[in-house]
């Protein structure tokens, strides 16, 4: 057991190291230069610009050779310092990210969890009802196949613009400041609903389809036939099938939860929802090395953590993994 986990931990550390290295490399391969961008936006005259360029290049630590930058980067990470945002200069990247994270969590955690629970229940149910299998399930296939962006825009257009039921932009009304008042909460929920619903619908379909197929597969497994041969009632056979069909779904859920901090890029862009996804887009558009790195670092940590949790959960729920563990 110990050996299994120490090996796992080693692999996770190695993965983290590689992922973070790539995270550092990729923004620097982008054509252009963040300081240049910043100056051109400010449209400063040439002489002053030279001075400022020197100043900012130094301030962001871009004046030293690349290998030095790389080492500095690692050093800073271990001090919890992700640098200063270029785009929102002089704010710290950590502050910018922490401001966006609550919106991601509020949007994604409920949509992922609720769609997972509802989708699995529905999928298992549809697997034994020919009627549902022939009506609702094809609709979920259609929703799955629809480009998400288009679906979200359609929802924003119909419910937001044509019928005007829901606002379509921001996380709360522009005329408000975040507070714990009732009016703010209502405004927040109204803005939250459309992005939530669009995510829920699409993910619901995915879970339902997966569960339906898994259940049908499990019901054809030998252990199901054996139970039937011995006259076990349908409820017991289905209970076993459901439990075993859940295993891959648990993996799927954990992976999905790991990506929660990454936000939902398309959703947040369509609905201008100020989560990490939206932030990342801004960062890339502005060549904000440090903000891009910061966002990706969060995503990497989230995914790795989620994977690690699945490894542990699997050992608990599936005896077959325990076997492999003792074997090595």
């Amino acid at each position: 057991m110990k050996r299994y986990f120490s090996r796992k931990v080693f692999i996770y550390i190695l993965t983290f190291f590689l992922a973070v290295t790539i995270d550092w490399l990729v923004p620097r391969f982008m054509p252009g230069n963040p300081v240049q961008n910043m100056l051109s936006r400010a449209s400063i005259q040439s002489d002053a610009a030279e001075v400022m360029r020197g100043y900012y290049t130094k301030a962001f630590g871009l004046d030293v050779p690349l290998w030095q930058q790389y080492l500095n980067f690692w050093q800073a990470i271990f001090h919890g310092d992700l640098g200063v945002s270029v785009y929102m200069f002089p704010e710290k990247v950590t502050n910018v990210i922490f401001r966006a994270v609550p919106y991601d969590l509020a949007l994604l955690v409920p949509s992922v969890l609720l769609s997972w629970i509802a989708g699995n229940k529905f999928g298992a149910f549809a697997a034994r009802s020919r009627w549902l299998d022939n009506t609702i399930l094809p609709i979920t296939y259609l929703l799955r196949a629809t480009p998400y962006m288009w679906l979200a825009i359609l929802m924003a257009w119909s419910l937001g613009i044509v019928w005007g039921i829901f606002p379509i932009s921001g996380a709360y009304s522009f005329s408000m400041q975040p507070s714990f008042s009732f009016a703010f909460l209502v405004s927040f929920l109204r803005h939250w609903f459309l992005p939530f619903a669009s995510l829920f619908i699409v993910q619901f379909g995915g879970w339902a389809i997966g569960m339906r197929n898994m259940i049908i597969y499990e019901l054809e497994e030998d252990y199901s036939h054996y139970l039937e041969s011995l006259g076990a009632p349908r409820s017991l056979v289905r209970k076993y099938a459901f439990r075993n069909a859940m295993l891959p779904q648990i993996t799927g859920l954990a992976l999905r939860l790991g990506q929660v901090v990454a936000g939902a890029l398309a959703t947040e862009i369509v609905f201008s929802y100020p989560g990490i996804g939206y932030l990342l887009l801004q960062a890339i558009n502005n060549q904000d090395y440090f903000l891009i790195q910061g966002c990706f670092l969060f995503i990497v940590i989230g995914v790795l953590l989620a994977n690690f949790i699945i490894d542990v959960v699997y050992v608990i729920v599936d005896p077959r993994t325990r076997q492999g563990m003792e074997g090595t």
Binding site: D222, Y223, L230, G231, Y240, D318, P319
Partner: peptide
């Protein structure tokens, strides 16, 4: 079934639910 007629199936190696302890499976059955 089981009470009057029973079978040891061809697939006896895979006949038991892989994620249940054998005793528990028998009990539930």
């Amino acid at each position: 079934r089981y009470k009057n007629v029973s079978i040891i199936p061809q697939y006896a190696m895979n006949a038991m639910n892989p994620t249940r302890k054998i005793g528990k499976m028998v009990k539930e059955l």
